[in-house]
Structures are given as structure tokens and as C-alpha cells.
Design a protein around this nucleic acid. Structure first.
Lengths: 340, 340
DNA sequence: ATGAAAGCGCTAACAC
DNA sequence: GTGTTAGCGCTTTCAT
């Protein structure tokens, strides 16, 4: 361990020890190629000996740049957003950019408070999963100099870069898979269609039915109030009370699917033997369930990673930037719940 | 939307519009009580009209303070640390302190790189789940002016504040619970005892056995190479091959417990009827398993929240601080897997 | 109660 | 190639 001087060592002490000016030290820090090899080494030695760590805040202040971005998610405790965060932090880390984590909790007031904090810190950019109603706030943020990219929520305007995954496609491939198993009728166990993802996934399911040449009523719908395992159990109850069981069940999230599977199994209906089931999101629980669940996965890590990349690129481009709308493709993982 | 001046508005433009000096503006920002009500209002008006947002970085630079802390966890994707992070971010948020998220990935090199970044940003403090070997690095960080508190890992020295949960106690209460069900022998399905938590939980289990007046060999041990569901399945296989089944099984994590339960059930052994099972960590999967799992839970959110509080307190105390070692108590949640 | 002035640690022209 | 100098936007004495 090197001896520490009590006062934080700064660029000038490095300069003094190396016998150069502070400007030169700054140069070896930021544009090493411009300084003579010999001096560069001497300065580097001083830096090492003094254990000097440059003050990024001071540099940022002076240069007008910033080595920080903000990440605003509803809740880092949600595994989906934990993955997104991981991707974003990794991407930022590669450029030595720090990520400030904010949880909006679906609460506009909280979101606003955190955006204020990010603004005060003059972050170079923000990756955000925005609440529906906040486009103006985001525009203001951008006008203040922070680049903004939206993740996993389609923004009407093309004012920002955004990255999302195609839910219509997800609904389609899940349903196609079920149909490929020979199903002629499928039940859609859905959450509130007021939620964009639920509406989109349904749209995809309908497309698949239609494309298969089946009548529209080959797709029956059960709508759950929310999207928990218990809601799935209840939904399956409805299915069981109906006139005829569907040939297959597509649930728009995994918890619903697990609930449905449990209820069906308990009623003596074999999954997948009698009725194959597919879910959505591919949460950990899907793979680890008693009957491993077929599910549509989203490239969560990729979402975050790409979003951070976009924001970093936009920062680097420094004016003259065309917004990009990246759309990822969901991916179907077939497991026992739909294996014949 | 208020009109934006193209150039970011600063304290001086506020001063000009309000007809006061910049010093006064600074005062209404930081010590409102010291400025006359009338002036305060005028300045506040100007701030609002100009939509002025103070530059925290500049303020920090000048004042030597900092409104940021770092959070270093192995992996935010791990639900345990996601909860910890949530707690830390919430606590920091209450003091309007930004949290920079870092994932060390159990990789000393990465941890080191992130600590460098935090150092460059001159964060006021760091909440960290440190790798075993890094005390010196932490000391250096602290000497550089950042307060450091360790979370969920006992640090030998009392050089830092730390917050952790008592694993010995956790092992004890789980085992006591199993014994209270009438078990006279229990199998401990453990991970590598080179891991501190595994060793501690075993110690707790032994304490419980001893306290119940049972011979030491009433506790049999199976050690798994790692701690997944599959390892649990295998461990249960060993149990089944043994001369006699134990009266109960305590697994030092939930995945092991789920694997054990599956294997036992498949072998016709009823859980909890024939053999009650308890796990550890109380992950989501525990409650949602086919047979909901009894498990020892840790106050993850609390760990993070308290850790951040400690670091903020230490920052505020500004010298003359006695390090605190906070120990949380684990809590047993009884579910079907051990319900008679 | 307010204003004037001196920096915080660094970068970026610009001279030499 | 290197040194000088003027700030970045703000806080903080110290006068007034």
C-alpha cells in the first residue's frame, strides 16, 4: 500500500512531482498521443506514485461533458427490469460511464422526482421505461441536454430513440406453435387488454388463427383481472366450466400459465397430453416449474444493453442525430408443457 | 411548457432576473432561512420562470461534498441483490442522493474497475457486498474520502460499518422448527461449507440438535457441489439410498429444497406427510412451488435500506464516527412443506 | 441581509 | 511539445 497524503492529490501535485505543467498532465490524461513519450512516462510515474485519481466531476464541469447516465425503471426488483438494468450497466461500463439507478414505481410523482435528480446531476443521457403520460417531461429533459432513449414502451412521437420487442409477433409465434401441435381451437388467457402488451399479444394470436385458415371463433378468450398464478387458476376454472375444453391454451404471461396448468392438472387434465399450454415472458419460474413451461421470451438483457448503447452513441454524435427505433424479436422456448 | 433559453440557465441569470447577487441566489438554494422573505420570493420566482435547475456537480465540486453514493453488488439480476438495491436506492432517494449501480460479477478485476469509477466520481460513500480479498482496497477508498459500508458479508476488521443477517440463527430456527414437528433425526442438505453462509447455517443446525438434547449424529449431512434444483434432486437420491430416511430435511437454500422435494415426491415419499422439508432464502419460487416451501427469509430490502442509511449517516457525521455492526435476524416462514 | 471576490479541480485555447 | 491562462457553475468567507 502506498502512503496516502492526507489531502486528496490533484493534477498540480502530479505536475510538480513530474516537473511539468498541469496542462501537460491533463494532456497525458486525455490526449496521450500528443505528448512526448519520455514526458508521458514521467507523468505516468508520478500519477502512479501519488496514486492519483482524476476528479471526473471537475473534468465534466469544465468540459461540459458528463460520464453518467440515468436508468429509470419501474422497479429493479422486477426480474424483467433487473435484466434490462444489467444490460444497460454492462454497456455503459464498457465506456466507463456510471449508471444512476432510479425506481419510478409506476408513480408519476416519483418518476418526476428522479428525473429532477438526474437533471441536477446533468447526466449525459437517460434510459427510461416511461409512464404513458410523460412525453413533455422527456422533451424538457432532452432540451436540457440529456439524450433520452425509451426502453420497452412504444412512444408515439419519433422524438426519441427507442428499443422494444414485438409483442404481436410474440403472440403469433406462441399460437402458431400450439396450432402446429394439431390444435384446432385455442383458449387465450389474457390480462387486461387496456395494457398494450396484452392487446398486442392477442392481436398476434388472432393473426395466427387467421393465417391457419381457422375461423375467428377458434380462439376463445378468458380475461383475468390481473396476472398472477391465482388468476390463472381461476381462469382455468372457467375453462373447465365451459361446454368444451380448447385443444390448447395460450396465456399472455407465465404466472397465468402456471396457474392454468395447476388447475388443469388437478382436474385430471394432462398437460401437455390432453391440453398443451404456453406462457409468455419466460421467467425463471417457467423453466423450474413442475411441468417446465413453454414460453415466449424477450431479450431483456439485450433491450437494456442496446438502449444504453443508443444513448451513448447519441451522446457521442453530438448533434445531427437521427432517432432510431430498434425492435427486437421475441423467441419461443418449447418445454414439456407443450411437448407431445 | 416554458420557453427554454438555448444556453443552460445558471445561477447568474437567476440573479440578474431577480435583481440580486449570485451569492443571494446560492443562499436561497442552500440556506433559505438566512435570506429575507421578500427577496426569497423574488428569487424563487426567477428560478421558476427560468426553469432553473442547479448544477449539482458544480456545487459538489466547490463544496467538497457529493450527492452520490455507489452500490456494488455481485449481480443485480440475482433477486436477493435486486431487493438489497431497492432498499439502498430508496433510502438514498429520501436524502436526494443518487445511487450508481455496479455489478462486480464476483470478479475481483471488475470490482476493482468499478471502484475506480466510483473513486473518479468522488462518491460520498459506497455500499458494497465485497469479495473476500479486498479489505485493503476498501481502506484505500475510505482514505480517499468515501465512506464505506459492507453489506451481507462479515468483514473481519471493525474498520467499516456493516450490516448482515445472522446465518447461525437462521440454521437454528429452521432446525428447531423441524424438531418441533416431532423429528428426532434431520438431514442437512448443504452447499460447500467453504462458503461462510453454508458453514454458519450448519452451525446453527448443530446448535439446535444439541439444545434439543439429541446426539450429534441425529444430524446427518449431504453436501452438494453447488446449490441448484438438480443438486437437490441428486442429494435426495443419496438420502433415498441410505439405510433409513431422516425424519425431516433442512436444505441450506431453496433450490436444493425444491429439488429434494421433487425427488422425494416422485419416490412416493409424501412431503410433508412422511418427511417435512425446509429451505433457506425464501425466494419467490418458495411460495409458488407446487408444495409451497417453508423457508428462512432474510430481510433483503432492510439490509440495503439500512446499509444506505448507515453510509448517509457516516457522511453526515463528518469525522468522529464509530463504526456500527448491524445484525438482522432471519425469519422463518412456515408453509405446506412442513405443515402437519 | 446582501454583495464582492476567491476559488473547487480540471480542460482547452492559445502562446511559446 | 509544453506552459499559461481563463474559466466551467457554484459555495463560501468577508465586508458592507
Amino acid at each position: 500500500m502506498t502512503k496516502q497524503s492526507r489531502l486528496p492529490t490533484g493534477i498540480r501535485e502530479v505536475a510538480q512531482l513530474a516537473g511539468v505543467s498541469i496542462g501537460t498532465v491533463s494532456n497525458v490524461l486525455n490526449r496521450p498521443e500528443v505528448v512526448a513519450e519520455r514526458t508521458r512516462r514521467r507523468v505516468q510515474d508520478a500519477i502512479d506514485r501519488l496514486n492519483f485519481v482524476p476528479n471526473r466531476g471537475a473534468a465534466d464541469l469544465r468540459s461540459g461533458r458528463s460520464r453518467m447516465i440515468g436508468l429509470v425503471v419501474p422497479d429493479i426488483t422486477n426480474p424483467f427490469f433487473a435484466e434490462v438494468a444489467r444490460g444497460a450497466v454492462d454497456a455503459a461500463g464498457e465506456s466507463n460511464v456510471a449508471v444512476v439507478l432510479c425506481n419510478s414505481d409506476q408513480d408519476p410523482a416519483k418518476e418526476d422526482r428522479y428525473l429532477d435528480v438526474l437533471e441536477e446531476h446533468r447526466v449525459a443521457g437517460v434510459v427510461i421505461n416511461p409512464l404513458a403520460a410523460i412525453p413533455d417531461r422527456l422533451a424538457a429533459l432532452r432540451d436540457r441536454g440529456s439524450r433520452v432513449v425509451c426502453v420497452h414502451r412504444s412512444v408515439r412521437t419519433s422524438e426519441f430513440c427507442s428499443v422494444a420487442v414485438d409483442d404481436v409477433e410474440g403472440g403469433r409465434i406462441a399460437t402458431e406453435h400450439l396450432l402446429s401441435l394439431g390444435a384446432r381451437s385455442v383458449a387465450l388467457v389474457n390480462g387486461p387488454v387496456s395494457l398494450r402488451p396484452c392487446a398486442d399479444r392477442r392481436r398476434g394470436a388472432r393473426q395466427a388463427i387467421k393465417a391457419a385458415g381457422l375461423p375467428a371463433d377458434a380462439l376463445t378468450e378468458v380475461t383475468a383481472a390481473s396476472m398472477t398464478i391465482n388468476d390463472g387458476v381461476e381462469a382455468a376454472g372457467q375453462l373447465l366450466k365451459g361446454p368444451a375444453l380448447p385443444d390448447a391454451v395460450f396465456c399472455t404471461n407465465d404466472l397465468l400459465a402456471i396457474g392454468v396448468t395447476r388447475r388443469l392438472t388437478r382436474a385430471g387434465i394432462a398437460v401437455p397430453g390432453d391440453v398443451p399450454v404456453a406462457g409468455y415472458d419466460d421467467i425463471d419460474l417457467a423453466a423450474e416449474a413442475t411441468i417446465p413451461l413453454t414460453s415466449v421470451g424477450q431479450p431483456k438483457y439485450g433491450l437494456g444493453y442496446r438502449a444504453a448503447q443508443l444513448v451513448l452513441a447519441e451522446i457521442a454524435e453530438d448533434e445531427g442525430h437521427r432517432h432510431e427505433r430498434v425492435v427486437f424479436h421475441p423467441q419461443l422456448t418449447v418445454r414439456d408443457s407443450s411437448r407431445r
